[in-house]
């Protein structure tokens, strides 16, 4: 292993100049977290600290991504660097999968172990702890012993439409990708625009669904573990769709400016992967949160 020799040609990897952005971003995150803690504990300075932190984060992200786009456009990145970004994005998405796995795991545990156990349904107990508790089937039982009355969210109304919207958006972004590979810019732009429209439509329907849940169904975050898992899973998913939609808009703007070539378009592909990821998470949600 120890024998080495110099390589003839110029295989330098791009190591960026010193940058202050990471340090400022860390400071922004600190302010955001500190502000949120103070806000939740009813200290007056909290909300302003949060807003300040969020402002710092957004500004520095805008500048940082701007710099990366500039570097990309000026040809700093070649195949070697491109591969690093791809690996990086894959493992970032893997960590996101693990994050959602925690909430799905909580859902399965609560639904299959905790609630039946509390209601005395497990054969080992043979004792019903809460004899007054009538409806033992999920999702009604998800309110737990301290039952709040709520109506569960049905699967075949808005959620089914949302499923169709997201699946279609997965198809349109792939259509746009094919166009990029064939250097068909018109179809590329149209495909991306359609994807963004479908994503925003999805988010609007989700917002309407939340409104409906809170005001008409009595389904709130406090409505037992059904409400908790429902809002945390769909909420974090919605947050990720929002992030994905913002990233899509950036990529769309770059496409309109003529960025990306058939050979070099990591940003487009990374965002497409991310979009497919939120799509797959939604399918899990539709089956396990809404349907079954």
């Amino acid at each position: 292993m120890a024998h080495t020799e110099a390589v003839g040609h110029d295989p330098h990897y791009y190591v960026p100049q010193p940058s202050i952005y990471p340090f400022i971003l860390a400071g922004g995150l600190f302010l955001l977290a500190l502000g949120f803690i103070l806000f939740m504990n009813n200290y007056g300075a909290g909300s302003w600290t949060m807003i300040g932190g969020a402002g710092v984060i957004l500004t520095v992200l805008y500048r940082w991504f701007g710099k990366v786009i500039f570097e990309s456009q000026s040809g700093s990145y070649r195949d070697w660097e491109d591969k690093s970004f791809r690996y990086g994005m894959i493992w970032f998405i893997a960590s996101e999968v693990a994050f959602f796995a925690a909430f799905f795991g909580a859902l399965f545990y609560l639904r299959n172990i905790s609630v039946p156990d509390l209601l005395g349904m497990l054969p080992a107990h043979g004792v019903t702890l809460y004899p007054d508790y009538k409806d033992l089937s999920w999702p009604a039982s998800g309110a737990g012993p301290a039952a709040l009355s709520f109506t569960p969210m049905g699967a075949w109304g808005l959620p089914a439409i949302n499923t169709a919207l997201l699946l279609t958006s997965g198809a349109t972004i792939t259509w746009a990708h094919w166009a990029l590979l064939k250097n068909n810019r018109k179809q590329l732009n149209l495909g991306l625009l359609l994807t963004i429209v479908l994503g925003v439509l999805f988010l609007s329907l989700q917002a309407y669904e939340y409104h409906h849940a809170y005001n008409e169904l009595g389904l709130t975050m406090g409505a037992g573990v059904y409400g908790a898992t429902f809002f945390m899973l769909t909420g974090f998913h919605g947050f990720h769709v929002t992030l994905g939609a913002i990233m899509l808009m950036v990529v769309y703007g770059r496409c309109l400016s003529g960025h990306f070539t058939a050979e070099r378009h990591f940003a487009f592909e990374g965002v497409a992967w991310y979009w497919h990821f939120v799509d797959v998470v939604w399918l899990g949600l539709f089956v396990f949160v809404y349907w079954l």
Partner: peptide
């Protein structure tokens, strides 16, 4: 925020 993940009163479980 009023959830009951770890609170038996809402169907949750500290052991989770």
């Amino acid at each position: 925020f009023g959830t009951h993940f770890f609170n038996a009163a809402g169907g949750g479980d500290p052991i989770l």
